[in-house]
């Protein structure tokens, strides 16, 4: 089995190709509704990559919140503002050229950086297969409330204490979401059409 296909890699290639392909489609598509669709596909494929990295919980989160919530929101926006002339808007060719050159350069740079760093190399197949599958939700749940399961073996007592939990950020995010919720409700509130302020001209 030593040189058989390593399936996670196969699926990594599949999902990354989908994610990148649809991301490019978002860039190159001119129709805003199709862009939204490609974005959904790209985000869903990224969720697949999360699953492959062993983070089911975040993957499911991505599907639920990102793909489900955010994109529905976006599509609402698209539909509310979709008139013929906005569905397709052209960008001047000059901008395209500059953008693409810069983009390619940036990608090249980032790839160089990623692949040149020895610590970021893959581990061997034997090592990868030895990694035990663990529940993902429980440690995250624990980390959000009480403490860090993965830091229990931390020899440094002070460090361990400092990394005890994410309770505060969690609360901040909750309050933040509440604020956004209220803001959204405020935005979408209905008001009666006020009687016109008719003054004699």
């Amino acid at each position: 089995m030593g040189d058989g296909i390593y399936w996670p890699t196969f699926f990594f290639l599949l999902f990354s190709a989908l994610a990148c392909g649809f991301a490019l489609a978002v860039v190159f598509s001119r129709n805003v509704v199709r862009m939204a669709f490609y974005l959904v596909m790209s985000l869903a494929s990224t969720a697949g990559l999360f699953f492959l990295a062993g983070e089911d919980f975040v993957g499911a989160m991505q599907l639920m919140i990102y793909v489900g919530g955010t994109l529905v929101l976006l599509i609402f926006g698209v539909m509310l503002t979709s008139q013929k002339q906005f569905v397709e808007m052209k960008t001047p060719a000059g901008q395209w050229i500059v953008g693409l050159v810069t983009g390619c350069a940036l990608v090249a740079l980032l790839w160089m950086a990623a692949f040149e760093t020895p610590q970021w190399q893959p581990i061997s197949r034997a090592e990868a297969e030895a990694v035990a599958v663990q529940p993902t939700a429980t440690p995250i749940g624990v980390a959000l409330t009480n403490g860090r399961v993965d830091q229990l073996d931390q020899p440094d007592e002070t460090l361990r204490g400092g990394m005890s939990s994410y309770l505060l950020p969690f609360e901040i995010v909750s309050v933040h979401l509440l604020v956004v919720l209220i803001g959204a409700a405020y935005l979408a509130r209905a008001k009666r059409r006020s009687p016109s302020a008719a003054a004699p001209g």
Partner: peptide, 22 residues
């Protein structure tokens, strides 16, 4: 951008029609 589809009824202005911020 040319005339927009149809905005408000010209000859019928009904106070019961609700106006949203969006």
């Amino acid at each position: 951008y040319g005339p927009r589809t149809t905005h408000m009824s010209t000859l019928v202005d009904d106070p019961r029609v609700i106006e949203f911020d969006v």
